Computed example of a mutant assay.
Amino acid sequence: MGEVDAYLSTIDGADREALERVIAIARDVVPEAQDGISYAMPALLYRDKGLLATVRTKKFLSLYPYSGAVVASVLDALSDFQTTTGSIHYSAHHQLPDAVVRRIVEARRAEIDATSGQASDRGEPR
């Protein structure tokens, strides 16, 4: 069991389902992502960099794409959600739309690809 699955196993109910949903979407978009730890949070890693983490806090669920630029790139779709420079807050009863989660993951993957100096295996030019 990886770090993300181990973390999710500690949470019950609707919060767990909401967190699992975000992770499932991210794994669908970037199937090569691996479980790991980034900034002390269980996270999906891509090319050994934080792709996405989503955790429960006392007041809400938070999604961390490890990039303020990624959060800024989807602000147009987040008017109903509270955000910070590096996180997006949601809840089991007010979940992020699938398309927004996909945009976040795709943007972060592209950012990691660009900073790693390597093209991905998806046939993109170097």
Rank of each mutant, 00 (worst) to 15 (best):
K49W: 12
F81W: 01
S62M: 06
I104S: 14
S62V: 02
R47L: 09
D76I: 04
L96D: 03
V70Q: 10
R103M: 03
L96R: 11
V70F: 04
S62L: 05
D76L: 00
V100I: 03
A110C: 06
R109F: 03
H93F: 07
L96Q: 10
L75K: 14
A53R: 03
F81Q: 07
V71G: 08
L61V: 03
A77S: 10
S67H: 05
R103D: 07
H94T: 04
F60R: 14
R103L: 01
V71R: 09
L75C: 02
G50Q: 01
L52Q: 06
T84N: 06
L75E: 14
Q82V: 12
D48I: 07
T57S: 13
V71A: 03
D80N: 13
H94E: 14
A107C: 07
V105H: 12
V105K: 04
S73M: 08
A77N: 10
G86L: 00
T83P: 00
K58S: 14
R56T: 14
A110W: 02
D48L: 10
Y66C: 03
G68E: 06
S91Q: 02
V70A: 08
A69T: 13
L75R: 15
R56F: 01
R56M: 12
P65W: 13
T83I: 05
H93R: 12
T83V: 04
K49S: 09
I104W: 14
S87P: 03
E106S: 02
L52W: 07
I112P: 11
V55A: 15
A110H: 14
G86H: 05
S79R: 05
H93W: 14
V71F: 02
T84L: 02
L61G: 12
Q95G: 04
G50C: 10
A107I: 04
T85E: 09
K59Y: 07
E111M: 10
H89V: 04
Y64S: 10
D98I: 00
T85Q: 06
F60G: 13
P97G: 04
R102F: 10
V55G: 13
S62W: 03
L96F: 05
L51M: 09
A77H: 10
